[in-house]
Design a protein around this nucleic acid. Sequence first.
DNA 1: GGAATGTTGCAACTGATTCTCAATACAAGG
DNA 2: CCTTGTATTGAGAATCAGTTGCAACATTCC
Lengths: 152, 152
Amino acid sequence: MQDYEKIFKAFLAGKGLKLTMPRRYILEEVFRLHEHFNAEDLYAKVKLVTRDVSLATVYRTLPLLMEAGLVQHALRSSGRDRFEHIYGHPKHVHWLCRNCGAIQETDLQALMPVIKKQADAIRFKTDDIELSIRGICWKCALLENENHIEKE
Amino acid sequence: MQDYEKIFKAFLAGKGLKLTMPRRYILEEVFRLHEHFNAEDLYAKVKLVTRDVSLATVYRTLPLLMEAGLVQHALRSSGRDRFEHIYGHPKHVHWLCRNCGAIQETDLQALMPVIKKQADAIRFKTDDIELSIRGICWKCALLENENHIEKE
DNA sequence: GGAATGTTGCAACTGATTCTCAATACAAGG
DNA sequence: CCTTGTATTGAGAATCAGTTGCAACATTCC
């Protein structure tokens, strides 16, 4: 059994809940996906493997996975909540280009000491960190510049 | 005229749009509010001052204010987009307690050097930074502990 | 004045997420 | 292998934040 299964199972057990087949299918798929996904993406993927999972169950399982620390919110996009698995991954910063929509990631570790310090200062018990930065990626910046020059 | 009015007016003019009365009421209220707010909050506040603004107009004006750099997204809460005005304010970190919902803020400045360095590394032109941290505030942590002790 | 263009309130709509509910599964204790 | 209590599920209905179409206005520029 994968580590993340053990963790999820233990987490559920702690709340008197069980690791059922639908939950297991969802969990597996979450860790097979290596990009951000929304509930519908995840549902579609799971559907390829089995019919024994409904969209409602996906929506019900996602919060459990987050509470278990296996999944975190990623940047919301086009009106949909997005997620990503985090177990075994260092947390990261998301850079969202508001022109082309591309998302890049960088490491959050470098920021952790300062964040830790602030958390201590206000005595906050951190679960989940989400650092999202919106702006323009270099490709789009380049294009914008070209167009600008053309116009003049 | 306030600085932010000038900015908004200039921004609108640049797009062939005008600073109309409804937009002006909304703008004023945004800068009178010193907490996070969602569209409905803002609408309710504006309603206290005038009847000449509809909720639809609030929803239509908010994206303009963001594009003008006067307002930014804050942490989404209970299914609603939240905002805050930012003109003249240093950006900050949001600490959201997932038990009591309280939001605290700390200064983002301390983190800027590292963020700036990463931005340079991927040649990203930053507009908007949103650092949201979910967890448990010290008050709730205290309560949780007490309950735990009682149970045992 | 009158055309052209931007703006607004209202109400209808959209679409993601949540909820309801009746049917199932499953464990524990006979 | 019944019985009972509790957790779980799929399907579809309900909800509700946010968006949009539209007819009526407002402004500006001939």
